[in-house]
Design a binder for these strands. Structure first.
Lengths: 121, 121
DNA sequence: CAACTACACAACCGCGTGCTTGTGTTACCC
DNA sequence: GGGTAACACAAGCACGCGGTTGTGTAGTTG
């Protein structure tokens, strides 16, 4: 595992764009749900369509984006196309973000808890 | 209608939306550059504007988004407004993504290495 | 072979979003 | 106080993107 984090600070512009693009791929609930479903195991387009309750074309489109980003693998078997997680590391990202969201919710919660404090304004 | 309200796999729809939103905040080169610059230390809007070569309004707007997401902190000092990293964990995310991008580039690179004559299409 | 299934691709549309332009507000300086 | 600097906010515009509709293409079935 290449864990040597941090390419140098002044990230070059094209690299910055690549990173942003990768983040943007994950910035869609539908795609996150697809990845979440695939976490349970491989699935065909039809199964994913049924699981998410979306149209076949929409599912296929998002799968295409995820596949182009290298996050899922595509495997044609006869009539069906089986998709699988192609880059397991995305889940670490999601978990970290979930942690961040949780912490943020906790902060908001504690703000609401101890409220007697009038909005400072 | 069974509703597993677990945090585990079946991520609830609103949570999924929150996670996606957070990813989307990071899905902008300008905002990544702002965070990358703030990694070196606190900075005023003017300094960031100068560092990134963007308009003051644009920088201020993106800083507002980052601030709303809790990723930067805002500290008004007299005439200036000093921004700082508010959630250092974002860098772990960026590093992981950078690692993924690096790995992807390596794959593409190795693909290009062995190429003498692309057989088809 | 014909009909059907499963999937991908292309064209279109409406909305969200990034960037610019313009302006208001507050603090500093003379 | 007047003028200027620093910053945030609002409106307008253009582009990208998600979703739907429509269609093409293999593969399967009878």
């Amino acid at each position: 595992m290449d864990q040597h984090a941090a390419i140098a600070h002044p990230l070059t512009e094209p690299l910055m764009e690549l990173v942003a693009q990768r983040f943007r791929v994950l910035g869609e609930p539908m795609r996150l749900r697809l990845l979440d479903r695939l976490r349970d195991g491989d699935a065909t387009v039809g199964e994913l369509q049924d699981a998410l309750g979306a149209s076949q074309q929409n599912v296929s489109k998002h799968l295409g984006i995820l596949h182009a980003a290298g996050m899922v693998s595509r495997n044609k078997q006869g009539n069906r196309t089986v998709y699988a997680i192609g880059d397991p590391s995305v889940f670490e990202l999601c978990d970290q973000v979930c942690g961040g969201v949780r912490r943020q919710i906790n902060e908001l919660d504690s703000l609401l808890q101890g409220v007697g404090a009038p909005p400072r304004r």
